[in-house]
Design a protein around this nucleic acid. Structure first.
Length: 341
DNA sequence: GAACTTTACCGCCATC
DNA sequence: TAGATGGCGGTAAAGT
């Protein structure tokens, strides 16, 4: 059963403006990912803060990497009003974009706009200096180049995407969808992201995909490294998993586990587990009416107090307040029998 | 909120 | 010889 708490339709002024920047040599699939997520989000049209998507470029026409020319409606000044700026990949990423483009990106970032890159779009952000001091990712084939060319960036190659606050970067091509879903999850909750994933016929998240709440990288390739152990941990999140448990599953020492975890995810095992648990708790709070105590138990927190502490530290709110904030977005009743397990 | 215990993390070094 | 792994011990963080 689905109880709809959606409020009345919002006005254009309330919309969150998402502007994609099409650079010469645009990789159109990357732009397509952004369109698919932010321009066609089904079921979200009545929600406050839903997206007003548009594409801009330096000139009216943009040569793409895919053999045709794209005509766009808006010029660069569109970025000045964007709440979120998206830079899809472009084939000429080896060279810095035009100075006007870099300035527009810098100004958008300076006034607090969220900056997102897809694939090698990260190079445009790097050229603008927006990734300095940040953790970032890009297409795996270009990751070494990014790290070499911009030593100030902490480049993490084996992840789907990285959320480093107001700067978010995704890995190659289809990872743009993963990052888009993450942004929707951040803005509208797990329910909306799942709805959008269903519409796009993709998984709501891949292998530990909830891990991206903070800087939450996940491995791109399944069945390599510790991905099996992480998948196992996700299946048993409600247990009190220790470092020794994970090491035993991975058939290695605790020391090696920590080392490999950090190499593959950018996080320590404990921190990764905490993020997973927090994400599950958020999902349960958003999509069920389970008491906070049960949410804590099912997410693997030792107590409701521990869950509240984590919420206060990471989300600066309480579980109850968090749940209340999502009431307007649809609340599903708990599955039969699950509320008291 | 303090004190204590447990667990996790990391640097260093040895071994394979 | 370089790289991966594991053990040890100190420190920090989390839990009680």
């Amino acid at each position: 059963m689905f109880i709809d708490f959606r409020p009345s339709p919002v006005t254009v002024d309330e919309r969150h403006r998402v502007v994609a920047l099409a650079l010469p040599g645009l990789i159109t699939f990357d732009l397509g990912c952004a369109v698919q997520v932010f321009a066609r989000a089904p079921g979200m049209v009545d929600r406050p803060g839903h997206y007003d998507f548009s594409t801009c470029a330096l000139a009216r026409t943009v040569p793409t990497a895919d053999g045709f020319t794209l005509t766009v409606e808006y010029r660069l000044d569109r970025l000045a009003t964007a709440d979120t700026v998206i830079v899809p990949g472009y084939a000429t990423w080896h060279d810095p974009p035009a100075a006007d483009v870099l300035d527009a990106l810098r100004h958008a970032a300076a006034r607090g706009a969220r900056i997102v890159s897809i694939c090698v779009g990260a190079f445009a952000l790097a050229h603008a200096g927006l990734l300095d001091g940040h953790r970032a990712t890009t297409h795996w084939m270009a990751a070494a180049d990014l790290a070499a060319q911009f030593p100030e960036i902490d480049v993490v190659p084996d992840v789907l995407y990285i959320d480093d606050g107001n700067v978010l970067t995704s890995a190659g091509i289809a990872a743009g969808l993963d990052l888009g879903l993450h942004v929707v999850r951040r803005d509208h909750g797990a329910d909306a992201a799942a709805e959008l994933a269903r519409f796009n016929v993709v998984a709501p998240h891949r292998d530990g995909g909830q891990a991206q709440y903070a800087p939450r990288p996940v491995p791109v390739i399944a069945d390599h490294g510790l991905s099996a152990t992480r998948a196992w941990a996700l299946r048993h999140l409600e247990r009190s998993l220790t470092l020794a448990d994970l090491a035993r599953h991975a058939c290695c020492s605790e020391r090696t586990l920590i080392r490999r975890f950090r190499e593959e995810t950018g996080l320590s095992p404990k921190h990764w587990l905490l993020q997973m648990r927090l994400e599950r708790a958020r999902e349960l709070l958003e999509t069920t009416a389970l008491p906070v105590e049960h949410v804590a138990t099912q997410a693997g927190f030792p107590s409701a107090a521990a869950l509240r502490t984590r919420f206060a530290d990471d989300l600066h709110t309480t579980p109850t307040a968090y749940r209340r904030s999502f009431r307007g977005r649809g609340l599903r009743e708990p599955p039969a029998g699950s509320a008291h397990k």
